[in-house]
């Protein structure tokens, strides 16, 4: 099956039309759990991006060598390997950020989004396309995390990237752990609203 999309289209698909967090609603756990600041969201986003790109490329490279019966175990092993690598690297070079993210770096291994991309895309397409697809999905996840982190940090502690911008704390509630659910739910509703409004105007014309 040939892929007819350009690299740009593949990337934009990951970020917009098939955004893993807001559209596919996959891998929600970190989006709720640790998105209290932009930095946290960005760091985990980078980790996921790394794992997604490397796993996609690896599977795509070896796609003809993988026996169909052991497809899933091979995917799991590949993902686990790259997660171990990023886990060790973060623990060694960025211990502070690693401590804040806690168990979530290791949990990337169970992210449905990564396995799904391997199964649906990387095992069929060329290395090049798989790279762009992985990059798009990873970026989509990162953007989602950063947006949620931005909202929560701005409203919760009145700061962005740790710098005080508002000078006061509008709603402490937003950095409380349970607020993650509300923020994600409200943002999903917001995107739905835009989509509905867009469709309505289009329908009128």
């Amino acid at each position: 099956m040939a892929n007819d999309k350009t690299s740009m289209q593949l990337i934009s698909r990951g970020i917009l039309s098939e955004n893993p967090i807001f559209k596919l609603a996959l891998s929600m756990c970190p989006a709720v759990g640790i998105s209290t600041t932009v930095i946290n969201g960005l760091m985990l986003g980078v980790a996921v991006l790394f794992v997604q790109v490397f796993s996609s490329v690896t599977i795509s490279l070896f796609k003809n060598k993988i026996h169909p019966r052991i497809r899933i175990p091979t995917y799991t092993l590949t993902i686990a390997t790259w997660v171990t690598v990023i886990d060790l690297a973060l623990a060694a070079y960025l211990p502070d950020a690693y401590a804040r993210m806690g168990i979530f770096v290791k949990l990337i291994v169970a992210f449905a989004i990564i396995t799904m991309r391997l199964e649906m895309f990387a095992c069929k397409e060329s290395v090049n396309d798989s790279f762009w697809d992985g990059l798009g999905m990873g970026l989509g996840f990162m953007v989602g995390m950063v947006v949620i982190g931005f909202v929560r940090e701005l409203l919760g502690s009145g700061a962005i990237f740790g710098y005080d911008v508002l000078g006061f704390k509008p709603l402490l509630f937003f950095i409380l752990p349970s607020a993650g659910f509300f923020v994600v739910g409200l943002m999903m509703a917001f995107f739905n609203w835009i989509e509905l409004a867009y469709k309505r105007t289009k329908g009128k014309i």
């Binding site: 993988i66 790259w82 690598v85 060694a92």
Partner: peptide, 22 residues
């Protein structure tokens, strides 16, 4: 055979990452 090869490759990647980062 293929699973073994996969495991060996994975082990090599992880092992070297461990040695470098430790």
């Amino acid at each position: 055979f293929r699973l073994t090869v996969t495991c060996i490759l994975a082990a090599m990647v992880m092992g070297s990452a461990f040695i470098i980062t430790n």
